[in-house]
Structure formats: structure tokens, C-alpha cells
């Protein structure tokens, strides 16, 4: 602390926010704010509205973590990051966690020294085309001009896909989703490729979404999830189990509507353990007993978050698909709260 005071005076600003070396969890608690890295704007996942309030599926995860740790879902500082800045922002400690539809890959996990705490959206890379082109399969895209967001895994998948199918294409690298949209709508590229969820979210903002189609091919696995720095396992556990609490609560039928009731105690011991009426899971995490209750209260359980932000009722209109609970044939499977 002493050091930060001196440094603060030195920089004549106190802009240098001092942070103790103890651990991210203590930092966040001391700061009273969670710094959460999100995209610069992708409707449904994370986008600021006209008043500057962030909203979306990834944002929901940040808010849940903030609620669990700090008791206030609004105690989040959203840090917009591009594909380029996101990893440095996390590595340098500028943000505490990154919830920016980031694909879990080997090299990011091992080489870049990050820890993916789970998957909040199982995705795959798809292609969007204007219907008037009359293309029905990605294999017919020989010679097409393709818009891609740089700095993402989609760029590499794309090269692999076209190479494997021995067809040619012309990449148009683009920094942000907004620009990709602009280029695609203007016809500067024939195809826009990114995660299928991103395609749906982008298409939702078009004036005539019906004029555009998403091709059936999904050319990659894109498990998207929140990540934290390698080596800070306490903090990693908090984020991981907050995410798991959101998933498990859907499985167990805990929603924001019946939350209060459930928190009073139920006949299901797992719910009771999660809600903190039984056992001491919160304490083990370094939080208080009703951390999970607050996390769910922040924006509802996983299913509610999904439905509210990107579900079929919303303009983004994504089906649950792979992201259904395992009982319904999806991949969402939270380890038990025990």
C-alpha cells in the first residue's frame, strides 16, 4: 500500500491504481469493483446501450461474479477489448476476468498462460451470405471474398477449411464486428464468417435480416468461456463455480422467480448446499454463504440469461442446441455442488 501511495504521488495523479500482490479475489474485494473484459460491442453478448449500460450474455456472467463476490451486480467496470488487446489486458492485470466470447484452445490455455474456467457457450464457426448469391454450401465458395475478424481463431480455421477443401478465397481482415457488418452489407465481401452465435447476433441488427442466410456448415469447435490468469487458483475457482452455479441452478430448477423460496431451504440437499443453507461451500471459496443466491439473483440462471439475451424470443434468436442442459441432449453439465 505504501508503495502505491508514493507511486500515486509521483505520477501526480493517483492514476496508478495500487494493487496488492495477495490475489485477485482480495484485490477485487478491496477495490469494490470487478474489472471485466468484454467485446467492444456484439449485440446479445456484450454491448453498451445509448445510456452506456452494458447488456448481454457475457455481461451476465460478469454481473453474476460481481454479485457473488461483492454483493452488487452493478459493481462491474466493463473494459472493452479488441481481439488484439484482450489477452494483454488480462495478463497485465488490467482486467480481473475476460468474458469476451473467447475460444478455449490449447495454446491459449498453455502457452499464453490463461485458465479457462469453463464454457458458457458451445459455438462453431459458420458462414453468412446474402441469399441472392444462391449459395447453399460453404464448399461452393470458391473464389469468394470473405470478411473475418482478425486476431481470432476464426481466421486460422478459415485458412484450414479452404486449404483442406482445396478452394481459394480472398480474406478481408477487419478489426471490429461493426466494421465487418458495414463491409458485408455494402457487398465488399460475399461472406462473413465468425462464430455462429456472432453471425446470428450480427444478422439481428440488419435492416432486412431475412435477406441473409447462415450456411449449414459449422467448420470448427468454438467452446467460448470466461478466463482468468494462470496461477491464481482461488480466483479461478470463484469464477468457475459462479458459472457452474448458473448452469446447475437451471438444471435444478432454481430461477430468479423462485429463488427466495428455494433459499429458505428445500428437500433437495444440492440446492440447499448451493444456496448456503447447508454445508459451507461459500466459506471454502472465500465468500459468504449466499454467494450463489446473489449470483443467480443478478440475472437469473443460465437458461434465463440465455433466453433474455440471445434466446429465440430475442432479435438474435439462437436455439439452445448444444447449449441445452445435458438432460435435454445438450453439453451443459455442471459438476455437482458437494
Amino acid at each position: 500500500m505504501k508503495k502505491s501511495v508514493i507511486l500515486g504521488a509521483l505520477t501526480v495523479a493517483g492514476l496508478a491504481a495500487g494493487a496488492a500482490a495477495a490475489g485477485t479475489l482480495d484485490d477485487v474485494k478491496a477495490r469494490g469493483k470487478l474489472n471485466c473484459g468484454v467485446t467492444t460491442g456484439l449485440v446479445g453478448f456484450a454491448a453498451p446501450d445509448a445510456n452506456g449500460n452494458w447488456d448481454g450474455f457475457d455481461v451476465g456472467v460478469c454481473r453474476a461474479v460481481a454479485a457473488a463476490v461483492l454483493g452488487d451486480p452493478n459493481a462491474v467496470e466493463f473494459v472493452p477489448t479488441t481481439g488484439k488487446t484482450r489477452f494483454t489486458a488480462l495478463a497485465s492485470g488490467e482486467i480481473d476476468m475476460l468474458a469476451r466470447n473467447t475460444t478455449w484452445t490449447f495454446s491459449r490455455d498453455v502457452d499464453l498462460k490463461f485458465e479457462f474456467v469453463g464454457v458458457n457457450y458451445y459455438d462453431g464457426q459458420g458462414f453468412m451470405i446474402p441469399k441472392e448469391l444462391g449459395v447453399s454450401s460453404a464448399k461452393e465458395l470458391d473464389g469468394a471474398t470473405v470478411c473475418i475478424q482478425t486476431g481470432t481463431t476464426t481466421e486460422l480455421n478459415l485458412a484450414d477449411f479452404f486449404r483442406a477443401n482445396n478452394i481459394s478465397y480472398e480474406p478481408v481482415p477487419i478489426e471490429t464486428n461493426a466494421e465487418a457488418q458495414q463491409q458485408f452489407l455494402a457487398g465488399a465481401c460475399d461472406v462473413y464468417t465468425t462464430d455462429a452465435s456472432g453471425l446470428a447476433a450480427t444478422r439481428a441488427t440488419f435492416e432486412n435480416p431475412g435477406d441473409y442466410a447462415v450456411l449449414p456448415e459449422i467448420i470448427s469447435k468454438e467452446p467460448l468461456g470466461p478466463l482468468v490468469r494462470h496461477g491464481d487458483n482461488e480466483w479461478g475457482d470463484v469464477v468457475r463455480w459462479t458459472l457452474n452455479a448458473l448452469i446447475a441452478s437451471e438444471e435444478l430448477g432454481v430461477t430468479s422467480a423462485n429463488l427466495e423460496e428455494m433459499a429458505k431451504g428445500t428437500s433437495n440437499p444440492e440446492i440447499n448446499r448451493m444456496m448456503g443453507t447447508e454445508g459451507s461451500l461459500g466459506e471454502m471459496l472465500g465468500l459468504d454463504a449466499d454467494w450463489a443466491k446473489r449470483a443467480i439473483a443478478a440475472g437469473g440462471n443460465y437458461g434465463e440469461l440465455f433466453a433474455k439475451n440471445i434466446g429465440e424470443e430475442t432479435p438474435v434468436g439462437l436455439a439452445r442446441g448444444l447449449n441445452a442442459q445435458w438432460k435435454n441432449g445438450g453439453l451443459l453439465y455442471s459438476p455437482p455442488f458437494r
Binding site: 481481439g83 488484439k84 489477452f87 486476431g151 481466421e155 481482415p173
Partner: peptide, 14 residues
């Protein structure tokens, strides 16, 4: 865009 952009992003060798 190549060295300072895509290569930097993909390898993380900032």
C-alpha cells in the same frame, strides 16, 4: 497489420 496485428494476436508474442 501482419506482424503487429495478426501474428501478434495469434502467437501472443507482443
Amino acid at each position: 497489420a501482419t506482424l503487429g496485428g495478426i501474428t501478434l494476436n495469434q502467437t501472443g508474442r507482443a
